[in-house]
Design a protein around this nucleic acid. Structure first.
Length: 517
RNA sequence: GGGCCGUUAACUCAGUUGGUAGAGUAUAUCACUUUUAAUGAUAGAGUCGAUGGUUCGAGUCCAUCACGGCCCA
């Protein structure tokens, strides 16, 4: 038992648990048996028998075996009420000495809040009318050695909630609800795309050339091949190679990695949906996106109108605004057209707004900075902003009428980018030229600029059908649909610094049990 | 990277002008056969994030650092 608390000072609660555990062992009670089998989920009882009155319950005539964690315990001497939580629901269990015998009841009194119990019993209603399971037998399934946080206020400490998510999941119903919803959202998207004939694929997470986005990558190394590899910042270029290969509708939902700051909107690893659709153009993607997100919202939240941080967001198809990039600068950002068309005036306005202008930066990039300052925060209701400058869209198809802009859009909701999409550039000569521009920018010091990808150009030379493709940030979508203010609320194990203890060692799932002293 | 805020018992939080550390929950013991933040009584539980400094005396004031939160970059 000593090994249990090697990393902690023994507090009196822990000591008490150890004493109890020893007492149970003395009575030949296993602390961690795997012999109990439940036959019913608590939710099945709650939903199946909630309408029956006392007579109806008495007529059920069967026993139920359930298992779960004790979350509260009220003892009255010879009778005890406990609340038990399983993955499906929580319900009250009535434990009485006269129902199970003196010896069994004495043993039961050694069990604690936090223990996992297996209970077999029948149903009845208490005096206050609550549907309750009356225990006939109780077995200890798993002994808990650590006390759970206080039940009334719950776990408030964000650091513990994220570092010890398992505790958060036990005691914070909202947390488990968010992650159930997250699964439903992702499943809803899969079902939607599958039904439209999209094929889900998996492409490399470790790439020799990190492409498809503007971001700083994580670097790693393959020993056997003695080869530098990057964790992917996007799957884009691989998915488009699949269009060359003949797949016409593909998608991937998986992790991307970006070696950048951490904030309420950024985690170094995050989940992205990307999908590519041959013989479609970017406007088709707007239609699909509206329809898909509205359907998912309807299924998961029960409405296409959702509340986010006390704002009502209307995701009903048809209500999504579509506006060009330049129009949004004027109409929403209040920027004088002369100020964004003329390079010097644009640079001046960017500087006056407190942003830096890097030497050699192109007009499109300056316009994007104006957009970030004046427009993006105001896009609360869903907005598709289209026709982005070519300068900042190295993989997008140019507009037929104006080569300075591309057939690209971004989707904004609650002042945040939720999706990025465009008609794909499939001209290998144009693509090579844009890569070369990026390489120059990289050489000039922009470490977020794209790498040259010769194989991708070679693939385009074989011929990629015209297509439109899109990326949707799943974490941000989940934030929107679960009313979560921080991305850490929707990622089970967000990245945190190594936990430090007073002894100078580190512990926690983010690192080794004991770090360098 | 910058600014602001926080870190006190297992959890949630008080702590006044610098003068020996408090509550509720949880835990332990006792009472209690229908409670649901059960109740009543008693008890134990603290490296006040860490390290320095000022002071007769620091949870409190100052400095540095660590971790977290929010905002900005």
């Amino acid at each position: 038992m000593d090994a249990l608390s090697a990393r902690d000072e023994l507090n009196d609660v822990l000591k008490g648990r150890i004493d109890k555990a020893c007492a149970l062992l003395d009575e030949d009670v296993s602390l961690y048996p795997n012999t109990f089998r439940k036959d019913t989920d608590l939710a099945d009882i709650v939903s199946g028998y909630t309408d029956l009155d006392e007579e109806g319950l008495a007529a059920v005539g069967r026993m139920f075996s359930v298992a779960g964690r004790v979350t509260s315990l009220r003892s009255f001497g010879k009778v005890t009420f406990i609340k038990v939580l399983d993955a499906s629901a929580s319900m009250q269990i009535f434990v009485a000495r006269d129902e199970m015998g003196v010896e069994a009841y004495q043993l039961f009194k050694k069990y604690d809040i936090g223990d996992i119990l297996g209970i077999t019993g029948d149903l009845f209603r208490t005096r206050t009318g609550e549907l309750t399971l009356r225990a006939k037998t109780i077995v200890l399934v798993t002994k808990s050695m650590r006390p759970l946080p206080e039940k009334y206020h719950g776990l408030k400490d964000m650091e513990i909630r994220y570092r010890q998510r398992y505790v958060d999941l036990i005691v914070t119903p909202r947390t488990s609800e968010i992650f159930r919803k997250r699964t439903l959202i992702v499943r809803g998207i899969r079902n939607y795309l599958d039904a439209k004939g999209f094929l889900e694929v998996e492409t490399p997470m470790m790439q020799p050339i990190p492409g498809g986005a503007t971001a700083r990558p994580f670097e790693t190394h393959h020993n056997a091949l003695d080869m530098k590899l990057y964790m992917r910042i996007a799957p884009e270029l691989y998915l488009k190679r699949l269009l060359v290969g003949g797949f016409e509708k593909v998608y991937e939902i998986n992790r991307n990695f970006r070696n950048e700051g951490i904030s309420t909107r950024h985690n170094p690893e995050f989940t992205m949906l990307e999908f590519y659709w041959a013989y479609a153009e970017f406007t088709d993607l707007m239609d699909l996106t509206e329809d898909m997100i509205a359907k998912v919202a309807q299924d998961v939240c029960g409405s296409t109108v959702v509340t986010y941080q006390e704002m009502e967001i209307d995701l009903t198809p048809g209500k999504w605004t579509r506006m060009s990039f330049h129009e949004s600068l004027e109409k929403i950002g209040g920027v004088d057209p002369e100020d964004y068309r003329d390079y010097d005036r644009c640079a001046l306005l960017v500087k006056r707004s407190g942003e830096k202008v890097v030497k050699g930066e192109k007009l499109g990039k300056l316009q994007a900075k104006l957009f970030d300052i004046f427009v993006e925060p105001k896009l609360i209701q869903p907005h598709f902003i289209y026709h982005y400058p070519t300068d900042i869209s190295p993989l997008s198809r140019r507009n037929e009428d104006n080569p300075d802009i591309t057939d690209r859009f971004e989707l904004f909701v609650v002042g945040r980018e939720l999706a990025n999409a465009f008609s794909e550039l499939n001209d290998p000569v144009d693509q090579r030229g844009r890569f070369e521009d990026q390489v120059q920018e990289k050489a000039a010091g922009d470490d977020e600029a794209h790498f040259m990808d010769e194989d991708y150009v070679r693939a385009l030379e074989y011929g990629m059908p015209p297509a439109a493709g899109q990326g949707i940030g799943i974490d941000r979508l989940v934030m929107l649909l679960t009313d979560s203010p921080s991305i850490r609320e929707v990622i089970l194990f967000p990245l945190l610094r190594l936990e430090t203890t007073s002894g100078g060692t580190s512990s926690g799932p983010a690192g080794p049990a004991t770090g360098p002293a």
